[in-house]
Amino acid sequence: MSYDPPRPAGRLLLTPEDKDAPARTSRLRRLGLGVWPEPALDAFADRLAQLAQAPYAMVNFPDGERQFFAGLHTPPGGREARGGKPEIGRTLPRDHGYCPHVVVRRKALVLEDVNDYPRFAGNPVVDAYGVRSYLGAPLIDSTGMALGTVCVADLAPRAWGRTGLDTIKATAADLAGRLERRNADGSFL
């Protein structure tokens, strides 16, 4: 696997090269996904956040340049609820966060404390948003393509454990199937 060169930031940061991004973007467009927020995916993210008891939950469709959160749950209550940090919006650059790693690896990623992993501790979401733990799984469709991810994140270290890993993987598999069975009216949940 090759990687983009690290960004000069004083800390190790390697964002994996995503050779499937053009094909993924095309597949997402055929499915009508990854362009605008989806109320059903926002509701999905709300349920996922509640299930994981996490302040952030996302359904993320990355392309070659950015990540797009078609489903997003953020904590209510302004900066105080986010430890004084700004709110995560619908898009992030590709080198922010951990979903690009999940998509390229095509495997779930568990980071109970991102500071325990030099490769991930320098990620911009740590300083910009205060993210300290992450749990994500790829959305693999019937063609075998990783369309994106479902993930949760917290501002504190979290012991996600085996239960968390099993839950995020099952949730991703279920949603991937629903995305492909999308109804003519756009509903799938």
Results as ranks from 00 to 15, higher is better:
R11D: 15
G136Q: 04
E80P: 08
D20G: 15
V131I: 15
R178H: 11
F68P: 05
S187P: 01
D174T: 12
D42L: 09
R105H: 15
Q50W: 03
D116V: 03
L109D: 11
L147M: 06
D4T: 10
L12F: 13
L92T: 01
I88C: 05
R178G: 06
L111T: 04
R24K: 11
S142W: 06
Y3D: 15
D4G: 13
H96A: 10
N115H: 15
G164P: 07
K85L: 00
R82I: 02
P124Q: 14
L31Q: 03
P100I: 10
R82W: 01
P55K: 08
L109K: 09
R178V: 11
I168T: 08
G77F: 02
R132Y: 04
G71V: 04
A121K: 05
D174W: 12
M145F: 05
V152R: 04
R30L: 15
V152W: 02
P37F: 03
G148W: 03
A153I: 09
A40H: 07
T74N: 13
E17W: 13
L41S: 05
L165R: 05
R181N: 15
R24N: 00
R47M: 14
I88L: 08
L175G: 12
G84H: 03
K107C: 05
T15H: 11
D113K: 09
D174S: 14
V110N: 04
L139I: 04
A40W: 07
D95Y: 10
L179A: 02
R158A: 00
P37D: 05
Q67T: 12
P86K: 04
G34C: 09
Y56M: 10
D127C: 11
L41K: 08
L135Y: 07
A70W: 07
K85D: 02
N123E: 01
T149V: 13
R119W: 06
R94S: 00
Q53W: 02
